[in-house]
């Protein structure tokens, strides 16, 4: 089945094909504050679902975009970033990506290039943004322009998970972009996957017919 690429049996990633479901992934080094950002955005809604076997944390959120209700699943890494790359299922069917670095640690900024490259290997076209976190530690950083992602036209946000600056704005804009992307997917792979899945379904229907025929054909012999 096409969804076997998902590889996580507990998580049926097929649901992300439904119109009212989007999947947004977070990328970035250890301790840049990815979970803290989620916590700040979700507040009372914050109920992380730990899937420690997969070094993965899921957060569910219900958003309103336009006049539609959208169920958003945020995927966070829970230490998987230590393996230098994420399992392909992490990227599978994602509709947007939030890339985070820590303004106090240059290495986390430099590593964005690696994260971005891996993201684009799997998801060449999904909306993505660059998030500079922990600006509360030193507000002077907000006077500097960080050029990573500029060439690719990625939106850039100065945020602080601690005092809340621009956290909600960033998440809301990314949810909207994920929904827009889903309406109009430009990833060639999405279409291929969709085609494969349709093909798969048709085949299955054929098979089940065949099985029935087979049974019918066999039963007289059995009797």
């Amino acid at each position: 089945m096409a969804d076997d690429a998902g590889g996580i049996p507990e998580l049926d990633q097929k649901k992300y094909d439904a119109d009212e479901q989007v999947k947004i992934i977070c990328l970035g080094d250890s301790a840049v504050g990815k979970s803290k950002l989620m916590e700040r955005f979700l507040m009372d809604e914050y109920r992380p679902q730990q899937l420690s076997t997969y070094a993965l944390t899921l957060y569910k959120h219900t958003a309103t975009v336009g006049n539609k209700t959208v169920a958003v699943d945020f995927w966070d890494t829970a230490g998987q970033e230590r393996f230098k790359s994420m399992h392909p299922s992490y990227y599978h069917k994602a509709h947007a990506c939030i890339m985070v670095f820590d303004v106090q640690r240059k290495i986390t900024y430099k590593n964005l290039a690696n994260w971005y490259k891996e993201l684009r290997d799997y998801r060449p076209e999904i909306p993505c943004c660059v998030v500079a976190n922990k600006i509360d530690a030193d507000l002077k950083v907000t006077q500097r322009s960080f050029s990573f992602g500029k060439k690719q036209g990625l939106p850039f946000y100065f945020v602080s998970a601690a005092d809340g600056t621009n956290v909600v704005k960033m998440f809301r804009e990314m949810i909207k972009r994920a929904v827009d992307y889903k309406k109009n997917p430009s990833d060639f792979m999405d279409e291929v996957m969709q085609e494969l899945e349709n093909f798969d379904l048709e085949k299955k229907e054929d098979n089940s017919d065949a099985d029935e025929d087979g049974l019918k054909a066999q039963s007289p012999e059995l009797v």
Binding site: M43, K106, Y109, K110, V141, T142, Q143, R144, S145, F146, S147, F148, F158, D163, G164, T165, N166, V167, V168, K169
Partner: peptide
């Protein structure tokens, strides 16, 4: 909750 702030960058970051 939704605290928004605009920043105007003045200089290039040495990290680049």
């Amino acid at each position: 909750y939704d605290l928004e702030m605009d920043f105007h960058t003045k200089e290039k970051c040495s990290w680049d």
